[in-house]
Design a protein around this nucleic acid. Structure first.
Lengths: 332, 332
DNA sequence: ATGAAAGCGCTAACAT
DNA sequence: ATGTTAGCGCTTTCAT
């Protein structure tokens, strides 16, 4: 591999001139610049990442802690990851994937492998928060812990999403509604989005005087079927459901039909899921989009802002947008 | 951040002694080792990754090129990624995520950001192969190109999987069968697994004298419905289908039922998909497992072997294993 | 506008 | 068993 010294020699300039030509931190005459570029092209030169990191104290790599456990909304996670990788690429960063375990955070930060961190799957009272706050490197959470003090966070405003879904049903005259939500484990861990979704749902139901039920639901066909059956047993008059569980969604709809309740004839459905999920079902479903890829990109934007100015911490909650697709029936 | 020099000073030894204590490349007396460990713990020392990479010419990072396009079997991809990350972690490596674009491969390798590469979503005549062969760093493909000469590859033996699925149906007396396969784009790109799957399917059909049809199918409910309808129109006598499209699978089954063909009463189904997909459907489906996570780990094992000895290139095709779950009816 | 040279924090000869 | 020291390939401060 060619080094910067090889380039300098070939271009007949000094190392530092090559370095400055590359970084643009110093004016370089057109003639010199041309010779340097030529030498770089001829040698196929690329700066050694380690040497650069050592000298400049930056790696141009950001760490991404994503929950890799299979089965749990992988689709959504993948879209977040895609957004982060895309946004990072655009901003000139590479992405180091980190597993959930406690150690990797300390390892990659204290060995200076990454300049910054994006953390997913945030819990209400997340064990990683103190560590993140103490870090030299800035971080952005995708999710919203109970106390986001001093941390940068971005997410869909799930509280509003839950409330908005309910209000849509209430406006159509529904008075008995249910939330088919995230799996029990996710809820029990007080995962931030599940917590907020439930709060928004329940709050709007209470405000609107609607009879309601929240059903944590496994991400499987069997789980979806069981939840629908439980729901029909406990709340036989149910006419509206909010589904925040993309794996269960198709099975929820078909189970209602198997049980003789047509969607949207007898039961109206509002889903909270990525758009491509809502549109690729046999029946298009009215939904509130989870703009996962966009949020991933915003996370990177916030990170680059933080690296420029560490005082820029902020919480950004993306407002939910409901798209009608005809799965809600007006009882008026 | 503490440096190795801080540790050395605190432990009253030289830098190199600390380095050797850390790497284990030299015998260190128990007493010295203890003092060094104490100093390291007290200072919270961690070697600077860049400095280490510069001096040792290795990064302990492997690059992972995964197709991040959403919608295409994300579940499966995620499982492969999880396997690679898990395997890498166990072997002491971190994972740098790379997008599909041509440039990133050259960039991370020639700037020495990674020691090795895992490449997914391999096409029959993949454009990246020449570049990979020319690389200083070893690489392992997940998939099998038409000419794997000199490259290390690992994948499920999809040819055998296709053949084996067909033979299961033939053995049960089925004579008219279809393959509900990967999306058209995937097939058109000559993606390695789709290509081999089709070959195995068609080969076994021809060998067994079965009437057959191959239907590339979009990864959506609508696509699944359309494929089933096309199939029933073109091959009304069909009694057995092989489904190699995990998104379509549930919709294929429900569409058959909507069209009055019970599964497995009238139509038998063999799926080729990860086990958790086959078991989480309303009806458990007889399937050939895609051991994605395991293959991801094997890829890393092969990579570490290659780094030890670059002549260890090999092709490993994992034999398919069919698990009965009752979705195939014996016509005997 | 350009060059010389001092590090950045490690590893691995080369000592003893 | 341990210490000394020469790089690894960059960035950046001084110089000019």
């Amino acid at each position: 591999m060619a080094t910067i010294e090889d380039v300098a020699r070939r271009a007949g300039v000094s190392q530092s001139t090559v370095s400055y030509a590359l970084s643009g931190k110093r004016p370089i005459s057109a003639a010199t610049r041309t010779r340097i570029e030529k030498a770089i092209a001829e040698l196929g030169y690329r700066a050694h990442a380690g040497a650069r990191a050592l000298a400049s104290a930056r790696t141009d790599v950001i760490g991404l802690m994503a929950p890799l456990r299979t089965g749990v909304d992988v689709n959504v996670i993948m879209q977040f990851v895609a957004g982060v990788v895309t946004g990072a690429g655009r901003a000139g960063y590479d992405v180091l994937m980190l597993t959930q375990d406690e150690g990797s955070l300390a390892r990659v930060t204290s060995s200076s492998m990454v300049d910054a961190l994006v953390v997913m799957d945030v819990e209400d009272d997340d064990a990683r928060l103190p560590a993140l706050q103490a870090l030299r490197q800035p971080s952005v959470l995708i999710g919203l812990p109970a106390d986001p003090h001093g941390l940068s966070c971005v997410d869909l405003d799930f509280t509003q999403a839950g409330a908005s879904a309910v209000r849509r049903l209430l406006a159509a005259g529904h008075r008995t509604v249910a939330l088919i939500g995230s799996p029990r484990e996710v809820v029990d861990r007080h995962t931030s989005y599940a917590e907020r979704m439930t709060r928004g749902f329940v709050g709007a139901c209470e405000a609107g005087g609607a009879t309601h039920l929240v059903l944590p639901t496994p991400a499987s066909a069997a789980g979806a079927v069981a939840s629908v059956d439980t729901l029909l047993a406990q709340l036989p008059d149910v006419t509206g459901v909010v589904v925040h569980n993309e794996v269960a969604l198709p099975h929820v709809i078909s189970r209602f039909r198997e049980r003789g309740r047509d969607v949207p004839g007898e039961v109206s459905v509002v889903a909270v899921c990525p758009e491509n999920v809502a549109t690729s079902l046999p029946v298009p479903v009215t939904s509130i989009d989870i703009p996962a890829e966009g949020i991933g990109q915003i996370a990177v934007d916030m990170l680059t802002a933080l690296m420029r100015d560490p005082s820029m911490a902020e919480v950004r909650l993306v407002s939910p947008r409901l798209t009608e697709r005809g799965s809600v029936r007006d009882l008026g």
